Computed example of a mutant assay.
Amino acid sequence: MEKPEDLQLYEQLRSGDKASLEALYDKYEKLLYSFAYKMVRDPGAAEEVVQEVMIKLWRGIGDYAADKGKFSSWLLTITRNTAIDYLRKQKRVKSEEVHQEFDTADTQQSVEELVEWKEQGDRLRQAMKHLKHEQQVIIEMFYFKGYSQRMIADEVDIPLGTVKGRIRLALKNLRNQLYQERGDLQ
């Protein structure tokens, strides 16, 4: 029997169905754990992050919109934010660096997940090459090193509003670039 699609499971979860939460956990636990582990560098902390993500799902914190992207990408964003919150609580965010790629030797993901993750990373790196240098620097600090917007403003010595504007513009440019590449492939 084939498992229900992510959207169907999500809708059932929103209705209070515990079995759908279990199904989503079973489906995404390894991916979320690997991603969280790369950020927090501690097995116990990575497990805590995954558990917190599942609690957020159960409590309905945040809304998934299918027209804005894949469910797995949305889950990874929640995981990223939860891991950064964890690191901030541990006062280690400045010393921790988020690594963009997985090391296949220390993950338990399936080959398909690793290939998909690598392909997405490659597409993102290619799209980032089209950004202006100052946008690349800020995106690197914000998304891959886990810096807050305030920390970036202090580090780069520019106003907070400028950081916010550059992030917003860079994300818009990345979205357009990725959309163009996807259109070229079709």
Rank of each mutant, 00 (worst) to 15 (best):
Q177C: 14
Q120G: 05
E48W: 04
M151S: 11
A45T: 10
Q126V: 08
K132S: 06
D67A: 07
D63K: 03
E47I: 03
S72N: 06
H133K: 15
D122Q: 11
K145G: 15
R92K: 15
N81L: 08
L185Q: 13
N176C: 12
Q100S: 15
I139N: 15
S148M: 09
Q108R: 13
A23D: 09
R125E: 15
L87Y: 12
I55C: 00
K172P: 06
K132Q: 13
Q180P: 03
Q8W: 04
R123T: 08
L178W: 03
E116S: 15
D63M: 01
R59K: 13
D184P: 04
K68N: 10
A19N: 06
W117R: 15
N176M: 13
G161F: 03
D6R: 02
T79F: 01
A45S: 06
D26M: 06
D6K: 00
R14L: 01
G146K: 01
K70Y: 05
K118D: 11
L9V: 01
K70W: 05
Q108D: 14
L13H: 01
L160N: 06
D184S: 05
K18Y: 04
L76M: 08
A66R: 06
E52S: 02
L87V: 13
E97A: 14
T79V: 03
K164L: 06
Y147H: 02
Q100L: 14
Y25E: 14
G161Q: 07
R92I: 13
T162V: 15
L76R: 03
M54P: 01
E101Y: 08
Q120H: 03
D157Y: 10
M39N: 14
D106C: 09
L9A: 01
W58C: 00
H133Y: 07
W117I: 13
Y33W: 13
R150E: 10
K132M: 12
L174N: 05
Y10F: 11
L57Y: 01
K118G: 12
D67L: 05
T107W: 04
I55L: 00
L9F: 00
Y10W: 14
Y143P: 07
K129I: 15
V115A: 08
L76G: 04
K68F: 01
A23V: 05
V111M: 12
K38R: 08
V137L: 10
K30R: 12
L131A: 09
E22P: 03
E101N: 07
K38L: 12
E2F: 06
T79W: 00
E48S: 04
